[in-house]
Amino acid sequence: MTYRRPAAIPVAMSVVAALVLVAGLWTGWVHHWAGIDRPDARALDAAYRMADAHGWWVPLWDGLSTIVGPGVWRVLVVVPIVLEIRRHQVRTACFLAVSIWGSGLVSTVVKHLADRDRPVTQLVSASGTSFPSGHALGVLVAVGTLLVVYSHLIRRSWRAVIVILGVLLVIAIGVARVALNVHHPSDVLAGWALGYAWLMLCLCLSGVLYRGLYRGRYTGSTR
């Protein structure tokens, strides 16, 4: 079987750019760069004031973080993994498993290495360290993975709508973590960037792309 490979240079450049962003954000908070510290502090202060003024603020964002958090996706993905194995699409099942479940390991390792404290003003209890946001990373990878594998099953007229809803969900999760003061904005940006890099790495290593990933239809040379 053969497949259409992604454009290697643009993908590699985008992954490098994402990792450079993570490194820059990491370096910025370690050395207390004003360009990192000030936006972080202002966003957290604004969210804290909103929570103090509105009783619905914390339940809204905490509920969103819980209902569509990465832990939920890592449980739900068991269903498509089993279905793909039953369809003898082992490569697709492996892609789903490694990308979505592996994102948790990536988050844990980087959090341990960075060891950034969570904001002292956190509005809900959150364990672990702060950088990067595991919610931002995990949800981006989960949504991105499922869209890569299954978006072609959606009618063309609805495909753009589903993609936009997926993007909005990823953004909303990131906003929620800052709104709850459990993450700095720089943690969320790092989570998105690292999640994108991980997803692209899994996609390239899987050796399959888009429709070929699901249907087993490939184009190109066997060489």
Score class of each variant (00 low, 15 high):
152 H>A: 09
55 G>I: 04
118 R>W: 08
180 L>K: 00
70 P>N: 04
64 L>C: 00
2 T>Y: 04
176 A>Q: 07
171 I>H: 05
107 S>M: 14
39 P>G: 01
117 D>S: 15
95 F>I: 03
19 L>K: 10
189 L>Q: 03
155 R>K: 13
44 L>I: 15
202 C>T: 06
103 S>I: 13
171 I>G: 10
205 L>F: 10
199 L>H: 10
216 G>H: 07
64 L>Q: 00
51 A>T: 02
173 I>Q: 05
68 V>Q: 04
164 I>F: 15
216 G>N: 01
10 P>T: 07
192 W>A: 01
177 R>T: 12
58 V>F: 01
69 G>L: 01
89 Q>W: 13
168 L>N: 04
189 L>P: 02
50 M>G: 07
52 D>A: 14
50 M>T: 06
58 V>R: 03
119 P>W: 10
108 T>M: 14
64 L>Y: 05
46 A>N: 06
56 W>Y: 07
213 L>Q: 13
44 L>A: 12
95 F>W: 06
97 A>N: 03
3 Y>M: 08
151 S>T: 11
9 I>H: 05
221 S>T: 14
163 V>L: 11
105 L>Q: 07
199 L>S: 03
67 I>H: 07
187 D>Y: 08
159 R>M: 09
134 G>R: 02
159 R>H: 05
65 S>W: 09
164 I>M: 13
116 R>M: 09
147 L>D: 12
104 G>F: 09
136 A>M: 07
148 V>A: 15
166 G>S: 08
157 S>G: 15
222 T>M: 11
53 A>D: 09
58 V>C: 05
62 D>L: 00
220 G>F: 02
114 A>S: 14
49 R>H: 13
215 R>L: 15
105 L>N: 06
172 A>I: 09
136 A>G: 11
137 L>P: 01
199 L>V: 05
43 A>L: 14
48 Y>H: 14
111 K>A: 03
111 K>D: 04
86 R>E: 04
216 G>C: 06
76 L>T: 06
166 G>T: 10
2 T>I: 07
28 G>K: 06
102 G>F: 08
6 P>I: 13
140 L>A: 03
127 S>Q: 14
178 V>K: 05
199 L>Y: 11
76 L>K: 03
119 P>C: 05
167 V>L: 11
36 I>W: 00
159 R>E: 11
207 G>C: 01
38 R>F: 13
184 H>P: 08
71 G>C: 02
21 L>I: 12
96 L>A: 06
137 L>H: 07
12 A>G: 02
115 D>G: 11
145 T>S: 09
132 P>L: 08
196 Y>R: 00
